[in-house]
Design a protein around this nucleic acid. Sequence first.
DNA 1: CCTATTGTGTATCAATCGGTATATAAAGCT
DNA 2: AGCTTTATATACCGATTGATACACAATAGG
Lengths: 195, 195
Amino acid sequence: MTLGRPREFDTEAALTKAMRLFWRKGYEGTSLSDLTDEMNITRPSLYAAFGNKEELFLKVLDRYDRETSSFIQAALDAPSARSVAEGLVFGACAFHSDKHNPAGCLMVHGALVGSDESVAMRKETSLRRGGLKDRITQRLKQAQTEGDLPQSTDPAALAGYLVAVLRGMAVEAASGASPADLKGIATVAMAAWPG
Amino acid sequence: MTLGRPREFDTEAALTKAMRLFWRKGYEGTSLSDLTDEMNITRPSLYAAFGNKEELFLKVLDRYDRETSSFIQAALDAPSARSVAEGLVFGACAFHSDKHNPAGCLMVHGALVGSDESVAMRKETSLRRGGLKDRITQRLKQAQTEGDLPQSTDPAALAGYLVAVLRGMAVEAASGASPADLKGIATVAMAAWPG
DNA sequence: CCTATTGTGTATCAATCGGTATATAAAGCT
DNA sequence: AGCTTTATATACCGATTGATACACAATAGG
């Protein structure tokens, strides 16, 4: 099978540890020593398994998109425009209220600012944030063609509003907002929904 | 008058340079070398004039609160609850559309995450963010007593919603949102306002 | 057993981090 | 002129940053 000495740690478990660390401290705020301590591996093992800090962060982003913040895909699969919006904002409530998760959103504060060294990672998270807005816009356009959302509304504007609310909830969650606080935000936010 | 050798630089102008730097790169992302290069002063001069990096950041936060993001106080002084809300969200539009300002909000992404070294600065910005919510809540309560806002509404929930929208707009602005994008967010957000 | 291949552990790299010690320059006061 | 006080400039501090060189350990295939 695989040649050479077998790896002594579980890469998936280690990736989870890394994700939670980046989630709490951001890309630049997380040092290699932080990572190796938390993942219980040595520095060369980390580089052999994940490349370098940037590649590790990218793998973490993939995992976050695919598994951790999966409530977003679930919301987009909801049957009506309103249920999509509700799924997003109330899904975000549940997401940020889950005590197993670090506070806030990895995409938002994981790499929003930083020194010139991390400009590539900021661009990456920015792209992924923009991708979410595009996906919501597409879903709302589909709702319009299905007669599910008034033709008078602007799907792009509604999507922009939704992602802004999601970002705001993430910032508030990172600042220590309670589940009740978040639910209040989501409830008021839905009052703006047409129809 | 003042004893000793006179200072050769303008502390207020230097503070402005520092503010814009922290605003762009965050607290930890801004190094002392960045600061001294941009402020055109030497390291000992910075320490003599501003204490250390933390004290400089606190002075920057004061200045940001007092002068730069002053549209917030203007909005709170508006005559009605609705005009307060409009002043906040559309004031944020103008604020983030001003090409003289760095993208985003210093309070939000200047110190949202980071290593353990910057925990005190994060707590400070978190406190100030919470202070804004309290001020808005108080203003809306006043509007309720003045019969300006329906008694059936929850001032704290509305304030929480408003700050969440402001935070979200800041994140979107930092991600490169256009003035039109921001105006769209603000317009939809106001559709949730009661009355 | 021998070789090839891969993972681990130690020890270290140059660069940068925030912060200072020291010496000198420029002002007011006497 | 001195003397005191404050600002500037150079050079440096220990600690930490992301990243590796090297030797050694553990497996598979021959």
